[in-house]
Each structure stands twice: as structure tokens, then as C-alpha cells.
Design a protein around this nucleic acid. Structure first.
Lengths: 227, 227
DNA sequence: CGCAACGTTGATGAAGCTCAATGTCTGTGG
DNA sequence: CCACAGACATTGAGCTTCATCAACGTTGCG
């Protein structure tokens, strides 16, 4: 007989009260700062407007019926999102920190949105390769490099190779992004720390100590290497 | 110490002689049929023209340095591909059977390519969720459903629920698509067969016997459910 | 303080990988 | 026609990686 067990997991569906609504307001560009953990739009619901992420961090995710969640992309400053075409959102979007977003009006140059969609696609493909074919260690190294590019702080002394960035993702977010568990993510990060490839004292402020070694492990294929 | 072992695997990089070249020819739509296993364009090389898949099956894939391969999408009749923007291909494209493709000229309605890019993105996101969060059984069920939609044969008697389709992918291709191994794919397919959800006598002609049960297992999120 | 959310660490278990043997099908050449 | 080779698929046995379960540490906040 066919005996298929669904992984048991508490339903982890986001509470719908948190969904963001903009006050009605005519014409001028709507801009606002939202708190960590705000759902900007929700998978399956009527399509939302598009946004520009001015500052902060947003996770784009999908959720299976039983609550398993997959973060499909992590967005940093400058990225656009909510550009889908259908009449419902394919994904949810959630802020991971205080985040400044701007609602896009229709006057945006189409080439800009087109470029963003292509970027999303390239990143989604690279991420599929990561999810399907990389080991836990490789996944974590890739994630650290990707995030260091998107969230690098202007290094005050510019001592080369020592990029520091804020990790807006919790270990659980990282796990949902990388197709791992919290524990595995934690173990990998600490292994990288012990190996002196990265450093952190607070769990959310990470410094890259040996970028080349990380690149070596991550086996990155262009997408992030060039970032 | 940091002890990261790379999965051992023979380099599986495609032989470059097989790369497709079109004969130079002015203006008229170029159309041709290519053999199974032909590389239409190669990851990292100068960007190719775009194509329409008239008939057959094409795999879009990426490869890690050590040869691990991830198939990022499987295309059936009607799909467009090679639409990337950069100046090199992010992925390779390979035919999996005798495949009729048409080179697109620039006169194509931009809305059509735009729609295709959005479709690619939606599918890549759904696939990321599959790769990161589904079990082997769920992955295989999802794949069977997806392929049955893209490659369903016109059923002669239209007895409902009994869709039959040609599985152009080998077990190895399925494994590379689903982030599994050949053996696991084979075991799952045979388990579905023993459970009478699908049937096949030849390994490449598959019949769906219980679509609802497959949907139940696959936990599909819209993308394919609606197909 | 005491609770809640998050992170770390260790012990154990299982899903899926690896390795190996065998089966099936197709095409080729004697 | 049959033997054989090669590619692909199946099946079983054992092992590895990562998930699960559990305990404990840390931080921040009412």
C-alpha cells in the first residue's frame, strides 16, 4: 500500500490581520515605513500594487497547505516587487525589519520593471540550483555571500575583505530560504565562524573574514559572484 | 577545522560539440527539428536568440563546477525560451526528444515574451518551493502532474481521469529536475504504480489513474492545479 | 522577575543517497 | 536468428546527511 506521511508541523500560516493596507490617497507616490513582520501582500489574494523597496528587507515566500514555508527570494534596497501579472499574488511578501517601501504608480518606465522581472527569474533559477543540488554548508555559504552583497554596510575604513552586514533574517528565515532546519543553519554558521570564514558576536551582525574561501565553498555560478 | 567535502561525482559537463548552430539566413522565420540530446545553447556563453518550442520537449538547466546538474524547468509545446536579457545565457537548453523549434525574430509582440518571462518566474518559484520543502514522494507526484499537463496526449476516448503522456525525461533527468537521485525517482514512481495512482509498462509512457490522489500528495499551489 | 522569542548544542533517528547487482530493451554484428 | 553490448531502469543493503527531539543559554521586555 501507498503509505505517504506528511511531515508533521504546526500550521504556520500568517495571521491575516497583519496584512498591509495603504490609506487611499490620490496620485502622489505613496511611501511608508512598515514594521518587522508586516505582510505586505498575501499569496493567493487579489493582486496587490507593485512596490519599490527603498530601505530595509523583504522576504518573498510561498506556503504549502500544512504550513511548510519556502522563502523564494530576499530583497534588499532598490529591488522592486509585486510585479506579477495574474489576478492573484503567486507569493506573499513580508518585511523582515523596519522597511521603507514606495508604491509604484503606472508611470514607471516599463524597461525598469522588465529588468526586475528578469532579475527575479535569474535569482529564482540560481536558487533552485542551490536548493536542489547544494549541501547544507554550500547553501549557507551562498546565502551569506548573497546577503553580504545586498546588505553590505558602507565600511568605514574600507579594509578590504572585511564586509560587515546586518542579517535581517532569523535562523528560521534562513532555514525557510535554504530548505534546511533552524538547527542545521545554526550549526553551519557556527562552523563557518569556528573556521574563521565569518564572524559574529550578535547573531544578526555578520562579518565576512574570508570571502574567497566562502566563494570556493558556495560554488556560485555568476548570479552572485558578479554582485 | 572546517571540513567541507564536495560530493564526489564525475564531471558531467555536456560535450561542447553538440551545440546547435543555425545556418545564416536572412529574415524569414527559421524553423528546424533537432535530435534528442542536442544542446540548443550553453550556460555562460554569448546570449543566443530566442526560440519557440513548436513540438517536443526542452530542459533548461544549470550546472555546478563539479558537474552536479539542476534542471530548472521543463518546456513543452508552445513555450518560449532563450529570453534572457544579459549578454550571456544564465542556463543551458537541451532537447530531450526530437524537437521542433522556431527561432523568434524581433517582431514578436513584446507582450508575449513578457508573459512567458512571468510564466517562467512563477514556475521557478513554485519549483523552488518543491525543491526546498517537499518530500521525494511529493516531488515526484508534482512532476507527474506537471508533465501530464504539458504533454497530455489527446485522449482518443476521453474517458475522464485517464490521461496518458510521454515522459520525455529519463529517470536521471527527473532526478536532476527534482533534486533527487535516479534510484529515489524510480522507487517513488514504482510506489505510485503499486498504489495504482499511475501506470506504466514502458518506463516512458505514463498513465494517470488517480489524479485527485496525486493532487492530494503533490500539495500543489495553484501553478499546476490550474493547468 | 519571569516570560517569550530566538539561538545553540547534543543525542538519536530516518529520508534519501551510495554502492552494487540484476533486469529490460534496443540496436548491431556474426 | 542469436549473442552481445550499452543505455536505462529497478531493487536491495548499508550508510550519511540532515531532520527531529530535547535541553539549555541569551536577550529583551512587560
Amino acid at each position: 500500500m501507498l503509505n505517504i506521511s506528511v511531515p508533521k508541523e504546526a500550521a504556520r500560516v500568517a495571521p491575516p490581520e497583519l496584512v498591509l493596507t495603504f490609506p487611499r490617497q490620490a496620485r502622489s507616490t505613496q511611501s511608508r515605513v512598515i514594521s518587522p513582520g508586516t505582510t505586505i501582500y498575501f499569496e493567493g489574494f487579489r493582486r496587490s500594487p507593485a512596490y519599490r523597496l527603498v530601505d530595509g528587507c523583504v522576504a518573498i515566500s510561498q506556503t504549502l497547505r500544512d504550513g511548510r514555508r519556502q522563502i523564494v527570494d530576499i530583497l534588499g534596497p532598490g529591488r522592486l516587487f509585486g510585479l506579477s501579472l495574474g489576478d492573484s499574488n503567486a507569493c506573499s511578501a513580508e518585511s523582515l525589519t523596519y522597511t521603507h517601501i514606495e508604491q509604484l504608480d503606472d508611470s514607471l518606465a516599463p524597461s525598469e520593471t522588465q529588468q526586475e522581472v528578469h532579475l527575479m527569474l535569474r535569482r529564482a533559477q540560481a536558487h533552485a540550483t542551490l536548493l536542489g543540488r547544494k549541501t547544507a554548508m554550500e547553501k549557507v555559504a551562498s546565502a551569506v555571500l548573497d546577503l553580504s552583497c545586498q546588505f553590505a554596510r558602507p565600511s568605514r575604513s574600507s579594509k578590504r575583505r572585511r564586509v560587515t552586514f546586518t542579517l535581517y533574517l532569523t535562523r528560521a528565515d534562513l532555514a525557510d530560504w535554504l530548505g534546511l532546519t533552524v538547527e542545521t543553519v545554526s550549526r553551519c554558521l557556527n562552523q563557518l565562524k569556528r573556521g574563521a570564514l565569518i564572524d559574529f558576536t550578535h547573531p544578526e551582525i555578520v562579518t565576512i573574514l574570508d570571502r574567497d574561501a566562502l566563494l570556493e565553498i558556495a560554488d556560485i555560478n555568476g548570479t552572485c559572484r558578479s554582485m
